[in-house]
Amino acid sequence: MWLQLSINGICLGAVYALIAVGFAIVFSVLKFSNFAHGGMISACAFMGYFFQASFKKAPPIWVTILFTAFCGVLFALFLDQIAYRSIRRNKSPNIYYFLASLTISIIITSILNVFFSKNPLAYPPLFETTTFSIGALKISKMDTMILIISAALLAALLLLINKTKIGLAIRAVAISPETSKLMGINSSMILIMIFSIAGFLSGVSGVLLGCKYGVYPDLGQTMMVKGFIASVIGGLGSLGGAIAAAFLLGLLEMFWTYVFGSLSTPVMTFVVMLLFLFIRPQGISGKFAKEKV
């Protein structure tokens, strides 16, 4: 039983990790909490759904994912233009980023709510049988697919950040935008990169979450909170920390649900987050995002 729960927990953690990283990457470089990420995920889940529904015979899932991820990138860049650009230009205080990203998230959710709140939509089933078994273990095919896709994506992202020249530039801007500008790094290029990555991730997670939980307007909002909690526990702005915390959170939630039922899990996750802030505010990663003196 424990093994079964662990596997389910890891699969859940993979979902959380995908969300948490999309949030953390914007935070680590631009130093603001991108509340819009939840709205983006909802929007992408719908885009993917309608893309798929527009064909007589549903295209393979990877086509949908790629298409949605691409839409997500365009969408993220568009949002940057209408919401964040003038804040950067005016050098307004950080609180405006909160407000702008919040507004974006709400506007998406409420537009979706006006039109689609009546009947929840669902992607057509991907597999004929939902689970396969190894010995006594029953493993959901959907979860396995999600796990594989997010593991691959996260690995690719970590490689991009840690091993490539672009990644080096991103890390440099994250540490000090002024200095990197002096070193000849094109910061607006990096900005586009970051929003593209965040958009890409929200596209992928939108489709995957839509497959797993059904498509409804508040989907992203509900899931985003988990992503936030993971990135706070992991240490704000640290990608590695966010991923580790996401898996930890997934496991914890599975075991808790098994023992105490699912109703109290949101309370548990919140209390865990608060305890973390009491005892180890720097998070798992030990990296600590402080405000500049």
């Binding site: 909170v225 949101p266 987050m273």
Partner: peptide
């Protein structure tokens, strides 16, 4: 615990609190 840290923590935690 929250107000000692960066402002973002406060926003995230209050939001989590609302959900809870």
């Amino acid at each position: 615990p929250t107000l000692k840290l960066r402002k973002d923590y406060f926003a995230l935690i209050t939001m989590g609190f609302g959900e809870m």
